[in-house]
C-alpha cells in the first residue's frame, strides 16, 4: 500500500533556479493489485513524480509512506525491497546474460559477494518461467530485440519481489505488438502477484484499455486527478490536455 499525503511535487531551490511546484495532490492511496498509468503532457512532471517516489529527490512538502512507514526513514536496501524500477531505455551490457540480469534483482537480498542462495535461484527461475524468458536465459542482453530486453528488465524488477514496480515509459521504444504484449503482461503481473504497478505513458488508448486506474497531471489547475476504470476518455483528455 502506497500513500501520498498533501504531496507537493516539483524542483527544490537550486543554483540560480527558484523553487518550482509542478503540481500538488491531496491524500491518495494505492492498493496492491492496481495497475496505474500516470499521464500528462510533456514537462508536466511524470518523471519528477517517479523520481520523488523513488527517493531520487524529495517532495517539496507532504509525505510518501509505504506500508505505513515514512519513506524518508528507510535505508537504501530496505527501499530496494519495497520498490523496483524499470527505465524507459536499457541498451544492454555486453556479455551480460538474461539470467544474470534477472538475478541482479536479488541483489538487495544477497551477501557481499552476490552469491545466490537456492531460494534466490528458485525465485529467478520462477520469474523467468512467468515471463516466458526460458529460451533466452543465456542470450547476451546486447543482442536481444528492444521488446525482449524490456521484458528481461521487467524480470529483474520482478525478481526484486518489491510491492511496487515503477516503469518509466515502458512502451516508448516498442512497436505496436510489443506494446500490447508488455502491457498485457504487466496487467497480469499486477493481478497475479498483487503488486502495485505504475507506468507513465503517452499511449492514452492503450492505458485506458489495460490499466485499472489512471492518474492524470492537470497542468491548468496543477493538480493530480484520479480516475478509475471504466474511463470516460473524452472527459479525461479534455481536462488534461
Amino acid at each position: 500500500m502506497l500513500k501520498f499525503q498533501d504531496l507537493h511535487i516539483g524542483f527544490s531551490k537550486a543554483k540560480r533556479k527558484e523553487e518550482r511546484i509542478l503540481f500538488t495532490c491531496e491524500n491518495l492511496t494505492f492498493n496492491p493489485g492496481e495497475f496505474v498509468a500516470v499521464i500528462g503532457p510533456n514537462g508536466s512532471g511524470k518523471t519528477t513524480l517517479f523520481n520523488t517516489i523513488l527517493g531520487e529527490q524529495n517532495p517539496l512538502a507532504g509525505e510518501i509512506s509505504i506500508e505505513d512507514k515514512n519513506w524518508k526513514n528507510l535505508t537504501r536496501t530496505e527501499k530496494a525491497k519495497h520498490l523496483s524500477f524499470v527505465p524507459s531505455k536499457f541498451s544492454g551490457v555486453d556479455h551480460l546474460s538474461v539470467y544474470d540480469l534477472v538475478s541482479m534483482g536479488r541483489a538487495p537480498y544477497t551477501n557481499m559477494l552476490n552469491k545466490l542462495t537456492e531460494e534466490d535461484e528458485s525465485i529467478v527461475q520462477k520469474v523467468i518461467n512467468q515471463l516466458g524468458l526460458s529460451d533466452f536465459i543465456n542470450e547476451n542482453t546486447i543482442s536481444l530485440s528492444d521488446g525482449e530486453r524490456q521484458i528481461a528488465m521487467i524480470g529483474k524488477a520482478l525478481a526484486q519481489e518489491a510491492g511496487i514496480m515503477i516503469l518509466d515509459e515502458p512502451t516508448a521504444f516498442l512497436d505496436y505488438n510489443n506494446r500490447r504484449k508488455v502491457l498485457q503482461l504487466l496487467k497480469e503481473i499486477a493481478e497475479k502477484n498483487n503488486q502495485i504497478i505504475f507506468i507513465s505513458s503517452h499511449d492514452l488508448d492503450l492505458c485506458f484499455e489495460y490499466c485499472s486506474r489512471v492518474v492524470a497531471i492537470d497542468t491548468s489547475s496543477n493538480q493530480l486527478l484520479n480516475f478509475y476504470s471504466p474511463f470516460k476518455k473524452e472527459e479525461i483528455i479534455n481536462k488534461v490536455f
Binding site: 523513488l54 537504501r76 536496501t77 527501499k79
Partner: peptide, 9 residues
C-alpha cells in the same frame, strides 16, 4: 540510477 535503486550507495 538502477544501481542506486538496488541498494548501492
Amino acid at each position: 540510477k538502477s544501481a542506486a535503486l538496488l541498494g548501492v550507495n
